[in-house]
Computed example of a mutant assay.
Amino acid sequence: MSEINYIVDRLIIPVFSLDKDLTFNYINKKARDFFGYGSAEFIGKKIDEIPSSTLHQFADIYQQAMKEQQKVCLQHYYREEATWLEHHIYPSKDGLTACIIDITEKEKIREQEKINLSREIHDELGQQLTALLMDISALDKYQQNKDGYTQKKIDDITDLLNITVETVRKISTDLHPKVLDNLGLAAALEWQSREFEKRSGITVQFQCNMTNFVFPSNIATCLFRIYQESLTNIARHAEAQMVSAELEWKEDGIFLNITDNGKGFDTEMATLKGRYGLTGMKERALQVGGRCKVNSRPENGTSITVQIPKPSLI
């Protein structure tokens, strides 16, 4: 064993490396313990040949990192052990090195902070703004002999407060979508579909073949946010009359499919120009070990498919 390998073998986090063909050429002791296999099961084998469903399912992500020569960081939730793990993948021209870090405590703290901040914004700031609206309403009702200027100022302040209240509600929901806690993902997506119809006038057909499935919080939030972003893009850009969406369970994971009959666009140009939030949606999916694929052509509508593989749901 070389000196550098000896040092890495003593690290308290799983570390392994692969050559440019995604064949294992090193794995430290912590990684062997983590996966439950010895060196013989890894060295000389490709990542999709390892008897670990997690690595097998993530093989395409490792391959993409190697191809694009870009660092990848993705989060993965093991539901049975209630553990959050973060995969860090560092490619080079000769291969890539990866390490796995347990971020369970950090994620619990971060999620609780978001919930607390959401409650604080909704309860405290929301109540204060509501009180201001009531005061303005009382002033408008009881003030006698209002001139045109005073009435306009009261109306302007009322309009601004109403807008601010809606902004506060949106920020609170963005921090922690309570609808997911109250309804669950499938019902929350159905609710979002109906709300979108009311606001936009665009028909949404939503279907779900999953019942009584409890999603990990990060997966539910990811899918809900991507659905919201997709509908927002459709309302702003697509000029569509109908949206078809489906949440379904398949053999290789969970899929969220969103299709519209709008005018479509050039996906390559849109990505280069940073339009439609495409990068943000793809990053959201990648952070939970999933993939987001966007297909569109001018005058041919748009379809978005989000896949969450089984390991991220376990």
Results as ranks from 00 to 15, higher is better:
F265C: 02
I254K: 05
H56K: 15
M269F: 02
E166G: 00
K71V: 13
D102N: 12
F24R: 04
E299Q: 13
S118A: 14
E68D: 14
T150D: 02
L278V: 08
S296Y: 03
L133P: 00
E229N: 14
N162P: 01
K29A: 04
T104S: 06
T23W: 01
R10Q: 14
L247H: 03
R291K: 13
F42W: 09
I50R: 01
F215Y: 14
R297P: 01
D102C: 04
I43G: 02
W84K: 01
Y6G: 05
T305Q: 03
S193C: 08
G262W: 06
H88C: 10
D33W: 05
Q64Y: 08
A31Q: 08
L11F: 13
A270T: 05
F265A: 02
N209S: 06
E120K: 10
Q205T: 03
V72D: 00
E195D: 11
Y78G: 05
N116T: 13
V294L: 03
A235D: 09
A188D: 04
K153Y: 05
L231D: 07
R297F: 10
S17R: 12
T267C: 06
I154L: 15
T173H: 03
I12P: 04
R79C: 13
S200K: 09
V15L: 10
T104D: 02
D48M: 03
S52L: 07
I50V: 14
C99L: 14
L185W: 04
L247W: 02
I12M: 07
E41L: 06
R119E: 09
T302V: 12
A98F: 03
A65N: 10
K152F: 01
V243A: 12
S230A: 14
K108P: 01
T211G: 00
P14G: 07
L256E: 01
N233K: 11
C222H: 05
L313D: 07
Y37T: 14
A270S: 08
I226G: 04
A31K: 15
I13R: 06
K108R: 15
E197N: 00
L278T: 05
E166K: 03
R297D: 10
N145H: 09
K30D: 00
V288K: 07
T130C: 00
L189N: 07
K46S: 05
Q69H: 13
E197R: 00
Q228E: 13
S296L: 07
R297M: 12
Q63C: 05
D102V: 08
T97I: 14
Y77K: 02
Y62W: 10
E41T: 15
D147N: 14
S17V: 09
D147C: 08
Y90E: 15
